[in-house]
Design a protein around this nucleic acid. Structure first.
Length: 929
RNA sequence: GCCGGGAUGGUGGAAUUGGUAGACACGCAAGACUUAAAAUCUUGUGACCUUUUUGGUCGUGUGGGUUCAAGUCCCACUCCUGGUACCA
């Protein structure tokens, strides 16, 4: 009887399903453990070998913790709203729900074949109305809340309303829109109800506003900042424009400080915390008011360096600034208008690609430095961003590199104000000095102060004289919550006189309407504009945009706790039991998107009392990407000729990805296979081979992608080897966090290990070898050494090292010819989390009825690991010269005496006596002569 | 530019607190079994030197330093990689 995974793996998968082996129990006396993967988007391409990496790790932890006596929640679901299904729908007319359902079936089939212990009864799908009903419900709670800056938390809008009625909004400290008017209780009482609702909307945590958004014409929708990478869309790489649109927004900025401080309570990598910190971008500084000469306008500038106020030689305003036309002197109108127009037409990509270009125009106006009273010119330039700070910057060319470049280019003065700024012989500033280490000069009352003192002095003076104030600024923007798409959650509101109102609770879920076509309407409305009677109570229009992809994924970890609940999004009893996710595993691509948004929603739900904790994910591991191996061949430009990779330097060539399967291990291409793969393309091509007659391709590691023909599907590995082999191999490949290329070169090693494990139970003739003999000390030692190391390694989340440890143990037991039940039983339990199928089979062969996966995980006994004696290497001046065995309980003095008396040591000492003898217990003896 | 992470044999990687660097696996080589191949098993495998050796020298990206002892700690640099950027 031999190891036959094709037979045993499906057998046990069926058994687990039928027996409900992994059903999550409701017994709450056990300690809980919640381990979760980032749920996948069910793409049409199915699972590739990169997906399971994290899934295998959480599966191992899940099985390990269960065997350790925990009640484990290890769920899986699908982030099933998204663009690809909709694009496919536009092309084929097929409803995205159908495509999605089909893809999910494929995914689940593939996942099951790898033997994961998910309890599918707890599956969630974000596109399921029974799920998005609660996404809509949470949206409504956010709509029904405002952020109280005094208490630093979200509170019900009714409380705010009560305050307005009692004392107006003069005393209210709230995160709200900047154009919110102030009013007294009497004024409030006099407002129409529409006016009241309009004002309340400015306070809500989700609100409608005209804002500048990232518009992607190719995708026909807006994108969040984290969905735009380097000026193009993250998905598809299409150009993105800045456009002003009326949008739903989420007031995540109110939570900026909370999200920043919360990072201290969670075990995430420094790299990831750093990314979130940078994204939030907190900076301390001041806002200073510059009066415009001859006009009744004040421009407020944000600066982190108020100390350099005497170095201001001009002020710059962003071309998108609203008041530019008022600020432009009639003599300069033509130039300014032309500049503003040009800036508007530049795409984000263009703007970012020539960052070094200096451009700007003088407005003809002057502003007054509030501290020095000096008049300085006001310029317009696109290096100032409208979206950050106030859109106006006080330029200090001696202290800021960009200001310096601008001043040099346009011949503006560059007065130095901090000692240590590099000057030439004539006393001119040679380059900007952005450091804060120095003493002020040329700076009026600040002279002689350090930068840090001067910063405080300027803020103090500005606040006393009403010229400005200390200010903290954030890079974080409010999140755009509207997508001009069909395949997303409908927003559960209707509009009356242009003001949004919440749909009554009993009308949830507001389901997606059926439409004929998924394109935008002829008028440019989103696809929902095509829906007939998309009206509340037959007259009030519903919202036409849908929620973004991150809505459903921001709270899904809560739904797993109570997935079938029809009354609540999650019963508090269950969120109180399961609480935070103890271990969350997923890719780093969600560092500032999903991981920030779901922290935001979790903080919010906590504020409103729905859950008892603020942070969703206590520990997070970013698994590395498994890269695919691509193969490239080289076509001579404008010809049908291809040249072998080693000859490409002699030609002008272009690169072409080919199917990786057509390339042999030595990189030579099987031309017959290649032609069969793409008959039309290669049939009459000419292939110029290398000197040895073979035609070579080049290989490269890059992200797996359908377009690069380098996708490796796990099903293939499961068929050729086994699911257990794949699981072990993906772990064995290296540390979980590390990115690594997929290659199957070493996969034989892990497969061989499973066969060796099997051979401890059966010989080649199929005889059952396991016996009940007493184990020998060396066998017990080998086993317990292994148990100890594996336990410790899993506890510190090192998933690769236990595989090696298993291999060493099995090799040793084979060497001992040990087939003893007393040794093999714990061994099988030990390996079970890594290789669930083979261990289940072997466990059953040993006569057990109950699954190995509900057994206790083995723990070690130090007794078996004790050594009578330990061998110490003896080093003389850093060189190993001898090796002596000492009993464990021997004193250091005795050891020292023995070392010095040893014949070999004496020979090396050549009669000299050592200056120092260092004995490190259980490690080493070092003699210094 | 700024902020992270990293660099160890032919390859993937191990070394947990500073204590015999290279575990384990792949690959390669030799051998056993076989008519043969596959599979399996055994042995060897960092480099160089040497008069065989149980010998010597060098060796964890580069150059310095601390230490009895450095892949590990400190300083400077090179390269790779992830993030991010006219953020004032």
């Amino acid at each position: 009887m031999e190891y036959n995974p094709q037979e045993i793996e499906p057998k046990w998968q069926t058994y687990w399903r039928e027996q409900g082996t992994y059903a999550v129990s409701d017994q709450t006396d056990k300690p809980k453990y919640y381990v979760m993967d980032m749920f996948p988007y069910p793409s049409g391409a199915g699972l590739h070998v990169g997906h399971p990496l994290g899934y295998i790790a959480t599966d191992i932890i899940s099985r390990y913790k269960r065997m350790k006596g925990h009640n484990v929640l290890h769920p899986m679901g699908f982030d099933s709203f998204g663009l690809p299904a909709e694009q496919y729908a536009i092309e084929t007319g097929q409803h995205p729900a159908l495509t999605t359902r089909h893809n999910i079936e494929t995914f689940k089939g593939q996942l099951d074949r790898l033997g994961f212990d998910y309890d599918w009864n707890r599956e969630v799908q974000t596109s399921d109305p029974q799920y998005y009903r609660w996404t809509q419900w949470i949206f409504q709670q956010i709509f029904d809340s405002w952020f109280n800056l005094a208490s630093q938390k979200a509170e019900p809008i009714a409380d705010l309303l009560a305050q307005f009625e009692q004392s107006g909004n003069g005393e209210v400290l709230a995160a709200c829109e900047e154009d919110t008017p102030s009013f007294s209780a009497e004024e409030w009482a006099g407002f129409s109800s529409t006016r009241k609702d309009e004002i309340l909307l400015k306070y809500r945590l989700t609100y409608v506003a005209d804002s500048i958004v990232n518009w992607c014409p190719a995708l026909g929708t807006v994108l969040a900042n984290d969905e735009v990478v380097g000026g193009v869309s993250e998905r598809g790489g299409h150009p993105v424009e800045r456009k002003k649109m009326r949008q739903w927004m989420m007031r995540i900025t109110a939570y900026a400080d909370r999200l920043l401080n919360g990072l201290e309570d969670i075990a995430w990598s420094d790299a990831l915390k750093e990314m979130q910190k940078n994204w939030i971008g907190k900076s301390h500084g001041a806002e200073l008011d510059f009066k415009v000469v001859g006009k009744d306008i004040t421009l407020t500038c944000f600066t982190t360096r108020p100390d350099t106020i005497y170095g201001v030689s001009f002020v710059v305003i962003a071309p998108e600034h609203e008041r530019i036309s008022q600020l432009t002197h009639p003599d300069h109108k033509t130039e300014v208008d032309a500049y503003v127009e040009e800036a508007k037409n530049r795409s984000e990509l263009e703007r970012q690609s020539d960052v070094k270009r200096v451009s700007g125009v003088f407005t003809g106006s002057y502003v007054v430095n509030p501290i020095s009273q000096e008049e300085v010119p006001l310029w317009v330039a696109d290096y100032v961003l409208a979206g950050y700070g106030t859109g106006v910057v006080m330029a200090v060319p001696s202290g800021d590199e960009r200001d310096f470049r601008f001043a040099s280019h346009y011949g503006l003065p560059i007065p130095p104000v901090v000692e240590g700024t590099p000057l030439d012989e004539e006393g001119k500033v040679m380059e900007a000095n952005p450091t804060k280490d120095g003493v002020m000069y040329n700076s009026g009352f600040l002279d002689g102060m350090s930068c840090r003192e001067a910063i405080l002095a300027v803020i103090e003076k500005a606040e006393k004289e009403g010229l400005g104030k200390g200010k903290i600024n954030y890079r974080l923007r409010d999140a755009v919550f509207s997508r001009q798409r069909y395949w997303g959650e409908p927003v559960p509101v209707y509009f009356k006189e242009g003001i949004p109102y919440l749909l009554p609770l009993d009308k949830l879920p507001l389901e997606l309407p059926t439409i004929e076509e998924y394109k935008p309407t002829a008028q440019g409305d989103p696809p929902l504009g095509r829906a007939k009677d998309w009206l509340y109570e037959g007259e009030h229009p519903y919202e036409l945009t849908t929620m973004p992809g991150w809505a459903g994924s921001s709270w899904y970890f809560l739904r797993y706790m109570d997935p079938q609940n029809q009354e609540e999004f999650c019963k508090k009893e269950w969120s109180d039991y399961w609480r935070q996710v103890d271990l969350y595993v997923g890719g780093t691509e969600h560092a500032v998107g999903h991981l920030l948004y779901s922290r935001f929603w979790t903080h919010f739900l906590h504020d409103r009392g729905y859950i008892d904790f603020r942070e969703p994910f206590a520990k997070l591991i970013n698994q590395g990407m498994i890269q695919g191996e691509s193969a490239m061949i080289y076509r001579v430009k404008d010809s049908r000729q291809f040249v072998s990779a080693d000859l490409k330097k002699d030609y002008d060539t272009s690169e072409l990805h080919i199917l990786i399967d057509t390339v042999d291990v030595d990189n030579s291409v099987d031309l017959e296979k290649l032609k069969a793969w793409r008959e039309k393309e290669f049939a009459d091509s000419e292939f110029v081979p290398s000197a040895d007659g073979k035609f070579y391709a080049a290989r490269m590691s890059e992200k797996m992608s359908k377009r690069k023909y380098n996708v490796v599907n796990p099903d293939y590995v499961v068929e050729k080897y086994s699911a257990d082999t794949l699981r072990l191999y993906e772990m064995f490949l290296g540390p979980l966090e590390q990115s690594k290329p997929w290659n199957t070169q070493g996969i034989d090693g892990t497969h061989k290990f499973l066969k060796k494990l099997w051979r401890l139970f059966y010989d080649d003739q199929g005889n059952y070898l396991v016996n009940g003999k007493e184990p020998k000390p060396e066998e017990l030692k080998s086993l317990h050494k292994t148990i100890k190391k594996v336990n410790e390694d899993i506890e510190r989340h090192s998933f690769n090292t236990p595989v090696s440890t298993f291999m060493i143990c099995v090799n040793e037991l084979n060497g001992f010819k040990c087939h003893k039940q007393a040794i093999l039983e714990p061994l099988v339990r030990l390996i079970a989390p890594y290789a669930p199928h083979i261990t289940e089979e072997l466990w059953a062969k040993m006569g057990h009825v109950e699954s190995v996966h509900v057994q206790e995980y083995p723990s070690w006994n130090e007794e078996y690991l004790k050594d009578d004696a330990i061998e110490y290497p003896i080093m003389i001046n850093g060189k190993k010269r001898a090796s002596i065995s000492f009993p464990v309980d021997m004193s250091q003095e005795e050891m020292k005496a023995q070392v010095l008396a040893d014949a070999t040591v004496q020979k090396w000492l050549e009669g000299k006596s050592p200056k120092k003898v260092i004995i490190v217990p259980k490690k080493i003896v070092n003699l210094v002569v």
